[in-house]
């Protein structure tokens, strides 16, 4: 159980410079995402566009397409990474993530159902449907596996079984409605390339709500770092904290899935990287996880434009390419530890 031993706190200067570096990288990421795409845009126009001094075609590319898209990518990354961290804390399972936990699949399923039953649904309305689906997915997994700790594998197996079950139902619905298939496919793999300011508007209230509750509950989440046996003496309190934790996960992951589809592996990968860099202390771990998540998705989105240039590829494929091998690595490591 190496993960739960409190690591030596990293020195303050290290942490400060770490945050500074990440911040710089995020800023660079934003700039390159705004600068490069299908159309070539000069630095001067980029400057004019972000200072809103021009209304030409090139300016509009940046102002109406690349900017909201990059912001959406960042926010989605933050959502997914924080949701992943929180799932790992609540379940005390290092291989947990909303993706492996039926939350993404549940949200996708209910969004697809809502699109079939109410074809003229707005984006905002489908967010609520995503929440319902996410809750159902999570409940199903937990009722199958329970939330006790040291159930890593059982939880993962139950989660993936539910994930496959829900996604096969989603696929079934898509097959049965074959003439709107193309647009439904979007719900099987995440993509931010069509995101506009409307998506940003839909996402932001949920980010603010979710992150505020998260920060507010931060002291209580420290309870989750204690072993269950000790925490048992704290009684009801711990259950309540876990419940709030899952609620935040559902808010963050549900809204992200509703706007951009399920983007896998971010929630799994980022918390581990953050932990490696900054240790267990939640005060630094949480912001670091969020920022790293945003960072990853901004860069993944940037590179996804060039996989099949000039055509876009879904960003989910890049996160899978990075996250997949890491998942395998983690599985091998954690599996050995549990022996």
């Amino acid at each position: 159980m190496s993960r739960f031993t409190i690591r030596k706190q990293k020195p303050k200067t290290f942490l400060l410079s770490l945050f500074a570096v990440i911040f710089i990288f995020i800023v660079i990421g934003f700039f390159i995402s705004l600068k490069w795409g299908q159309a070539t845009i000069s630095w001067r126009i980029l400057y004019e566009a972000i200072t809103y001094q021009g209304q030409d075609k090139e300016h509009l590319y940046i102002q109406t397409l690349r900017m909201p898209r990059t912001i959406t990518a960042f926010v989605i990354g933050v959502h997914m990474a924080l949701a992943g961290l929180l799932t790992q804390l609540v379940t005390r399972n290092p291989i947990a993530s909303p993706h492996i936990f039926g939350i993404n699949a549940g949200a996708s399923l209910s969004v697809v159902i809502s699109l079939i039953v109410f074809p003229s649904f707005t984006l905002t309305a489908s967010v609520y449907f995503a929440f319902i689906g996410a809750i159902l997915g999570a409940l199903l997994v937990f009722s199958l596996a329970g939330i006790q700790q040291k159930q890593h594998v059982r939880l993962a197996l139950a989660g993936i079984a539910v994930h496959f079950l829900l996604s096969s139902l989603t696929e079934g619905l898509i097959i049965m409605n074959q003439h709107s298939t193309d647009s439904m496919m979007f719900w099987l793999v995440g993509a931010v390339n069509q995101a506009g300011w409307q998506e940003v508007q839909t996402l932001l209230p949920w980010s603010i709500t979710g992150i505020t509750i998260f920060l507010f509950m931060l002291p209580s989440f420290r309870l989750l770092l204690i072993d269950d046996d000790v925490a048992l003496s704290l009684g009801q309190r711990i259950m309540f904290v876990k419940l709030i934790g899952m609620l935040i996960v559902i808010l963050l992951a549900g809204s992200a899935v509703a706007t951009c589809g399920p983007i896998g592996f971010v929630g799994l990968l980022i918390p581990h990287v953050a932990r490696l860099l900054a240790g267990e202390k939640l005060g630094t771990l949480v912001p670091l996880t969020g920022l790293l998540g945003g960072l990853l998705l901004v860069y993944a989105d940037f590179f996804s434009r060039f996989i099949a240039y000039p055509y876009e590829s879904p960003v989910g494929i890049l996160t899978a390419v990075i996250g997949g091998p890491f998942f395998i690595y983690l599985a091998r490591k954690k599996g050995r530890a549990s022996l």
């Binding site: 795409g37 299908q38 075609k57 397409l65 390339n193 055509y311 876009e312």
Partner: peptide
């Protein structure tokens, strides 16, 4: 080369 390439708005304008 693709029969049905998916375009984004930026690409369509380009």
């Amino acid at each position: 080369e693709d029969s049905y390439p998916q375009l984004g708005l930026e690409q369509l304008v380009e």
